[in-house]
Amino acid sequence: MTTPATSTAALTLRVYYEDTDAGGVVFYANYLKFLERARTEWLRALGVNQSELAVREHRLFVVQSLDMQYLRPARLDDLLVIHSRITRLGRASIHFAQRAERNGELLAAGNIQVCCVDAGSLKPAPLPRPLWDTLKAITLE
Rank of each mutant, 00 (worst) to 15 (best):
M1P: 15
E57Q: 09
P126Q: 02
C115P: 15
R59A: 11
C116K: 03
V81S: 07
L140N: 14
Q113V: 15
Q50M: 08
R75G: 12
Y17F: 12
L106C: 14
I138P: 07
F61P: 06
L35C: 11
F96R: 08
V25E: 11
C116Q: 13
A10L: 12
Y70D: 01
S93I: 10
R91C: 02
A108H: 10
L35A: 13
R37D: 12
T12N: 13
F34C: 00
V48D: 04
R129P: 15
E101R: 01
P128Y: 09
R72M: 06
S121T: 12
L71K: 08
R37I: 05
S121E: 11
A100E: 01
G110F: 13
G23C: 03
E101H: 04
S7V: 11
D19W: 02
C116E: 14
G90N: 03
D77K: 03
I82D: 00
R88P: 11
C116V: 05
D67C: 10
L66I: 02
G24R: 00
L122R: 15
L71D: 05
N30W: 09
L127I: 11
A74E: 10
A38R: 01
T12M: 07
L79R: 11
Y28V: 14
R75I: 00
T6I: 05
H83A: 06
L66C: 06
E18L: 04
L71G: 13
L32D: 00
V63E: 02
F96V: 12
E101I: 09
K33L: 15
E18Y: 04
E57K: 01
S121I: 08
L60T: 05
Q50C: 08
R85F: 01
R56G: 05
L66D: 09
P4D: 00
D19N: 01
R88Q: 07
R129C: 13
A74W: 04
P128F: 02
E36P: 08
R99C: 13
A137H: 03
P124Q: 03
V26Q: 04
H95R: 09
F34D: 05
D118F: 03
V63P: 03
L127Y: 07
R72T: 08
T20H: 06
L71A: 05
R129M: 13
T139A: 07
L106M: 09
D21M: 02
Y31F: 15
R56Q: 13
L127C: 06
I86K: 01
L131E: 04
V55D: 15
R91V: 13
T3F: 14
K123Y: 00
R39P: 12
V25M: 07
L53H: 11
G90M: 08
Y31G: 01
G120N: 12
K123N: 14
V114K: 02
Y28P: 03
I94F: 01
F27N: 02
W132S: 07
V48W: 09
S51L: 10
Y31A: 06
T40H: 03
S93E: 09
A45Q: 08
D77P: 09
H58S: 13
V81W: 10
L131M: 11
T2M: 12
L13P: 10
L107D: 00
Q64L: 14
N111G: 13
L80A: 01
R99P: 12
I86P: 05
F96E: 01
R56P: 07
